[in-house]
Write a protein that binds this DNA or RNA. Structure first.
Length: 1133
RNA sequence: GGGGGGAUAGCUCAGGUGGUUAGAGCUCCGAGCUUAUAUCUCGGCGGUCCCUGGUUCGAGUCCAGGUCCCCCUACCA
């Protein structure tokens, strides 16, 4: 017997109950054991940053990750089940700094690096534990660490890195000093999630970097980089995405005095006043015209096209003195307002002697003064230009954005504070012409939103190699060999990108990207294994920690017992292999995408178990939200796999969009459209959330909100209702799956149909999931829920009644049971909680004990129904094999096609009734149909249609022409050209029906003859016919009413009214009633027995007036002879 | 700045190569069906197909110009 089921399920508590059961019964562990040895299906998880609680946007991707893993496991594949945490990098530092209340790097160094880095590790462990719990709540099955273990490690580390700790490992407890154990997280021995701060991860990045160095791709570059003064670090090109925001600044026009043309000045324009002191050159466009004008006593050179704009309101006062091409200005020497500063004269010679006018093609005619202020120390184009022109550079600020010594009263001040002083100075020097507020897009730090500045810095890069000006297929081997960029592109070619545009986007990024900046002047991250000798300049890159330990000649003791992080690793020195001098590591840490990019090696035992690595690499599948990942994880994964193995890291990349608020805008707490993961899990539940995500088109953004969740929940509740009906009726009828002897053969059309649809569902969903198209699977599932509910169950309801014939009833129960179970199994990867809860009850008669059976249930050899009968059904739906194979014998495509026409004919019939204004309840004598259904099931199908349409008979007719008039549709694409100017007249005549039918199908319209293949004769219902047509399907209703039909209609009307009353009275199905009616004599006389049976009446009376008494429930109903009044009361025994 | 994609019902979007009554889903309104149901079925309301001009017998569709939005990419005084 099934457990009784509530009409309205509490989805949230069902989920918690399932989580508890999975944990207690070790369901996931049993699935792993069951699939061990199966063909490998390799999923590689992109690490989630363990820096904050998980958001609903993570839940989208994690749902995909989980459902494809569950699906593959149900096909018998062996999986690795490993997910990962991203641990190192600036984002963790920024949060730890915020917690400590720090505002600059200096405070970190003052506090001590060891303490700071320990706090970073602790934060990662805190949120790794938190995200683990949240992911489990989402239903994500992975080889999770016990969150308590992670917190235990964190607390031990906080106390003392050497504290001995014991945690649960892959094969029993593992122990070690806290810090060292943390470094071993994710190894085969410890098991669980991988952590990118692990020893193995960092060590393999060293190997990668050493390989790059071997090939000559690693270099130190000096460049003007975007720099965040708060974080004290350069921002790489990869990080610049979404870094721009509008900002209001003071722009200024200022004069530069020409040396050889006394009294004349060049007017330059800038939006960054703080860079004026670093001016070295002035760039002009050789092809543009420049004008010398006299203005307020000054003689100014300005681009001709910008004279009015540059002079502002005073422009009319200007007097033109001279015009020259830009090319004529080149080489002119000038003096700038800050030339007296010591730092400037040191760089440019006495009085700024190096200042000159240079040519630059990029100078445009639309902005500023067409004379561009060039400060090679403060801008990236400026720097390039400076290198090309052999100009010196002035780097005015330090890493905190503070002016260095030698800049007069600017020294010691922050860059953004000096604007007014610059104006004051320029005014005093009689250089300032005008200032103006402007709004422009300006780069900001993506972590802390501080405006960025450009700074001259030394950073480490991996060269992407040259970009050739010719198509890829024309490149020579040597050219490709010399360019990592093209080698990665070749790898990109071998990957299936979903959606397809991902392929082009990745290639586009590779074509456009500059060299990969891998260093950061920070603390928490990969220690770059770069050793640059200060004595001879030789650069060495160590390939592993062992390499370092072998080479160490000082400070090795400091590192002992610690992971390879700062500050301990900074103590270790090696001897330069060139000159023998002591060399210390460069202090920089690595770009965090190195950490995530190496995981297809570090987590797949690349070094310690090559056989294992070959089995799992490359991955079959990775998936992440695509905005950003083309330049981040996808990129680093590709680059590192190309260098390490010349291979694609994965066979398929599946990308999906962003989660936004219900209003389509980004989620923002202050906009009220933000939903936290925990809140969503508590209120809508994980299954609803998962279904909502998977049912969304991956290439578009999801609009996530409570209304969308309600819509999704409604769909799942229909499924629940089917289940509740089955369980409720089974209880009344005493049916259990164990007792069923029903077989598929000889079943009714409806039974065979729904089983066939179930088989199709399983097969098509398998195809969709295999193609990573979960969206289509959800669409098909929702169709399946609709079919089983609104067609199968609605049409077969009576067969489940306790007084229905037992043999047919058993067949109905068995059919519904199997169809429902099949649908649940297809839905299980998407909604793992609800499906498992329902499964457990539906299979309760035959569940094996919790140790399970050794045989996998649900394949062709061991169908689920047989296992239930034998008491060998596994304790969870997730342990079943995918249902395609066992449902193959159910398939009957011809029947599906026929039923489809019946369903559509029923819809047409209802449409006819609606137009004729005859309700379905009123029986009619006859329907005539053109169905196009034949075969042995035809009679039974017609009966279904008759019942659905409430007609006494359905007659199939071969020719429906008597029901229609002919209308001629002119096929314009065929004849339009020929008709030309007479087209309109012909069309009008055709619309009016002024058509003359000629022999052999031709027609004459408006005097024009049209051949049979130039027209289409259409059928429109003849006036007065109750007929509808769609795609060759025709339904016509005989609307003539006889007294018998009217009486029967009244009877049904009355039953319906009584049922409504019963519902209002809150009666249950099995309750018996007494019925008293007035004004219903005729229908009661002829249909008494049918009414009594339908409404469960023990006693029916036609009375003169309504009964008295509160126990009576009253109503009325319009019958053909007039209003009837009704009263019912429950019969008490 | 460069490249790409859009603009069609209140909302989300379909509408090969031009063809005369522009569709679907959701929402809203009405009706129908129904003691499993919140589902479902039928019908209705709802459109200057962004604007201007052109080609054509005929333009949502093709061409030119303009306006606005989105994505990618770059960032420049």
């Amino acid at each position: 017997m099934f457990n009784p089921v509530d009409a309205r399920p509490d989805l949230i508590s069902i989920e918690h109950e399932a989580l508890r059961r999975w944990r207690e019964e070790g369901v996931f562990e049993r699935l792993r054991a069951q699939t061990t040895g199966g063909p490998a299906w390799s999923f590689l998880d992109g690490p989630i940053t363990a820096n904050n609680p998980m958001g609903v946007h993570h839940a989208w991707g994690r749902t995909y990750k989980d459902l494809f893993q569950r699906f593959r496991a149900s096909l018998g594949h062996e999986l690795r089940w490993q997910q990962g945490f991203d641990c190192q990098g600036l984002w963790v530092e920024v949060n730890v700094e915020r917690e400590l209340g720090y505002t600059s790097k200096r405070q970190i160094e003052e506090q001590g690096l060891a303490e700071f880095i320990s706090l970073c590790k602790q934060r990662v462990l805190t949120y790794a534990a938190r995200q683990t719990e949240q992911s489990i709540r989402l239903g994500m099955w992975m080889d999770w660490n016990d969150p308590a273990d992670l917190l235990k490690l964190r607390d031990a580390l906080a106390k003392d890195p050497a504290t001995p700790v014991t945690i649960n490992g892959a094969n029993g407890p593992v122990s070690g000093p806290a810090e060292q154990l943390i470094g071993r997280l994710g190894t085969p021995e410890v098991g669980g999630s991988y952590f990118t701060f692990s020893d193995e991860n960092n060590d393999l990045i060293w190997t990668f970097l050493a390989k790059c160095h071997e090939r000559g791709w690693l270099y130190k570059g000096s460049d003007s980089m975007p720099w965040c003064a708060r974080c004290g670090t350069g921002i790489s090109q990869h990080e610049m995405t979404e870094g721009y925001a509008d900002r209001e600044d003071q722009s200024l026009y200022f004069g530069l005095s020409l040396v050889d043309r006394p009294g004349e000045e060049l007017i330059a324009w800038t939006t960054t006043p703080w860079t004026v002191a670093a001016n070295v050159a002035a760039a002009v466009q050789p092809t543009l015209d420049y004008e010398l004008v006299e203005f307020d006593g000054r003689k100014l050179w300005i681009g001709a096209s910008r004279r009015a704009a540059a002079l502002g309101g005073g422009a009319p006062r200007a007097k033109l003195l001279e015009t020259r091409k830009g090319s004529e200005l080149i080489g002119w020497k000038y003096r700038a307002p800050f030339d007296a500063l010591p730092a400037v004269s040191e760089a440019l010679g006495p009085d700024g002697a190096a200042h000159r006018v240079i040519a630059w093609d990029e100078v445009g005619s639309e902005e500023g003064t067409c004379i561009v202020h060039i400060a090679p120390g403060c801008g990236s184009d400026d720097h390039k230009l400076g290198v090309a022109e052999g100009l010196p550079a002035i780097a005015p600020i330090d890493e905190s954005g503070v002016y260095l010594d030698g800049f007069g009263n600017l020294s010691g001040r922050e860059w953004h504070e000096v604007t007014e002083d610059v104006f004051t100075h320029l005014t005093a020097a009689k250089s300032l012409l005008r200032r103006e507020k402007i709004t422009h897009r300006y780069p900001h730090c993506w972590r802390c939103a501080t405006p960025l500045v450009f700074r001259l810095v030394d950073e480490w890069f991996i060269s992407m190699g040259p970009l050739y000006e010719k198509p890829r297929d024309q490149l020579t081997k040597a050219e490709i060999e010399a360019s990592l960029r093209y080698q990665i592109m070749a790898v990109v070619d071998r990957i299936t990108w979903l959606p397809e545009f991902g392929y082009e986007r990745e290639l586009d990024w590779l074509r456009n990207m500059s060299d990969w900046m891998i260093s950061k002047k920070r603390y928490w991250g990969l220690a770059l294994p770069i050793y640059e000798c200060t004595a001879c300049g030789k650069v060495e890159v160590l390939s592993s920690r062992k390499d370092l330990e072998d080479r160490a000649t000082a400070g090795a003791a400091a590192l002992e017992g610690h992971t390879a992080h700062r500050p301990y690793i900074d103590e270790v020195q090696i001897d330069c292999s060139g000159c023998g001098a002591k060399v210390t590591r460069v202090p920089d840490v690595g770009n965090p995408w190195l950490d995530a990019g190496i995981v297809s090696f570090s987590t797949m035992r690349y070094r310690e178990d090559p056989e294992y690595w070959k089995r799992w690499f490359p991955a079959d599948f990775i998936t992440e939200s695509f905005p950003g990942q083309f330049r981040n994880w996808f990129y680093s994964l590709l680059a590192m796999s190309t260098v390490m193995a010349s291979s694609e890291p994965t066979k398929t990349v599946f990308g999906y969009g962003l989660v936004v608020g219900a209003d389509g805008r980004a989620m923002h707490k202050s906009w009220g459209n933000s939903i936290e993961f925990d809140e969503a899990a508590d209120r809508m539940g994980a299954d609803v959330m998962r279904w909502l995500f998977v049912g969304s088109r991956p290439e578009e953004n999801v609009h996530f909100g409570w209304e969308a969740a309600d819509e999704t929940r409604r769909r799942l509740l229909v499924l629940w209702n089917v289940y509740a009906f089955l369980v409720g009726q089974a209880a009344s009828a005493g049916w259990t799956p164990k007792g069923s002897g029903a077989t598929a053969k000889g079943r009714s059309v409806m039974d065979r149909w729904i089983l066939s649809r179930s088989a199709e569902l399983a097969a098509s969903a398998e195809r969709s999931f295999t193609a990573y198209d979960a969206y289509s699977a959800v669409r098909r599932l929702e169709q399946g829920i609709d079919e089983i509910s609104t067609w199968y169950l609605r049409r077969t309801r009576e067969r489940f009644a306790p007084d229905a014939p037992a043999k047919d009833r058993d067949a109905a129960f068995d059919t519904l049971h199997q169809a429902l179970l099949t649908l649940l199994r297809v839905a299980a990867p998407i909604a793992p909680f609800l499906t498992d809860a329902i499964y457990r009850n539906l299979a309760s008669a035959g569940l094996a004990d919790s140790t399970g059976t050794s045989q996998v249930v649900g394949g062709a050899e061991r169908p689920l129904a047989a296992a239930i009968r034998a008491g060998e059904a596994p304790g969870s739906i997730h342990l079943l094999h995918w249902p395609t194979a066992e449902s193959v014998p159910w398939r009957d495509e011809a029947l599906e096609a026929s039923m489809d026409r019946i369903i559509r004919a029923a819809e047409l019939g209802r449409s006819v009734r609606s137009l004729a204004n005859i309700r379905t309840r009123q029986p009619l004598a006859r329907a005539r149909v053109v169905l196009g259904v034949s075969g042995s099931d035809e009679a039974e199908l017609r009966e279904i249609l008759a019942d659905e349409l409430n007609v006494k008979s359905v007659e199939a007719v071969g020719d429906a022409s008597g029901l229609f008039e002919r209308r001629v549709k002119v096929l314009l694409p065929k004849v339009g050209k020929r008709l030309g100017g007479s087209t309109q007249a012909v069309m009008q005549a055709a619309r009016d029906g002024a058509v003359e039918f000629l022999a052999s199908g031709a027609v004459r319209i408006a005097g024009v003859d049209l051949a049979a293949d130039e027209i289409e004769v259409q059928a429109v219902p003849r006036e007065g016919q109750h007929v509808a047509e769609d795609d060759g399907l025709v339904v016509e209703l005989d609307t003539a009413l006889t007294p018998e039909l009217i009486s029967e209609g009244d009877a049904r009307e009355l039953m319906r009214a009584v049922q409504d009353l019963r519902k209002l009275a809150g009666l249950r199905r099995e309750d018996r009633i007494e019925l008293q009616a007035t004004g219903a004599k005729a229908p009661l006389a002829t249909h008494l027995a049918a009414i009594a049976a339908a409404v469960g009446a023990q006693n029916i009376q036609e009375v003169d007036r309504d009964p008295v008494g509160e126990e009576w429930h009253r109503g009325s109903v319009p019958l053909s002879a007039g209003e009837a009044t009704l009263a019912i009361r429950r019969v008490t025994e």
